[in-house]
Amino acid sequence: MRFPSTCAFVLGAALFAAPAIARPIAYADSTTLMTSWVPDAEFETLLLYAPEYWLSFGPTHMRVQSHDGRHERRYTTFRVNGLAKRWNLPRAQANAFGWASLGGVSGTGLRGSQTVWNAGLQLDYETRRVYFSAQTDWYRSRDTRHRFDQFQAGIAPYEHDVDVVATWFVAQAERSTGVLDEGTDYSLLLRLFKGTTWVEAGVGEGGKLVTYFMYTF
């Protein structure tokens, strides 16, 4: 059975509407819970343990649905993230991350439950006033092939320090290519974090709400 192209487009748009993981490794000996939620479209959660500052791993689950709620896909994987290189500068930091995951995907339009793998790369640069991130993410299963590219640029209205809430205005561009969807989406996000709590919310194309939450313990 071939997946209806309209539904495929809607699912594809929902699948990659949420913001990607800001930074896949928090710090050594930490566990991080991350969730992203786009109402009526997508819910994703990850639980990552980092034994070192350059390594984290853990289970992930993502559920996406079409806007009419009739079609759904579920991805469950185990993911490993690595920090390939870090540049520590006097008032800045840059990182090169890579990751890979393996698991299963099931749902509408697929010929049964399938093995899915994923691999990605992220480069970022951050000071206390500006933030840039570029990311590419690839998914493959028997019936799905998808590539997702994202660029984020953020600016902070003030330089935060310890015990001060950090505020960022982030502009995001996402390009999806593959069998499900083709196109570029733009979003504006407000990012707040203090201590080990990170909250992000914004609007995407068509006023679509995008939310993201992260807590490290």
């Binding site: 710090y27 930490s30 201590g195």
Partner: peptide, 17 residues
């Protein structure tokens, strides 16, 4: 003196170590 300090995750990680 430390290079690379940019966010609260740096603070938490260093404190923990």
């Amino acid at each position: 003196g430390v290079n690379g300090l940019v966010c609260s995750f740096c603070v938490q990680g260093i404190n923990k170590q």
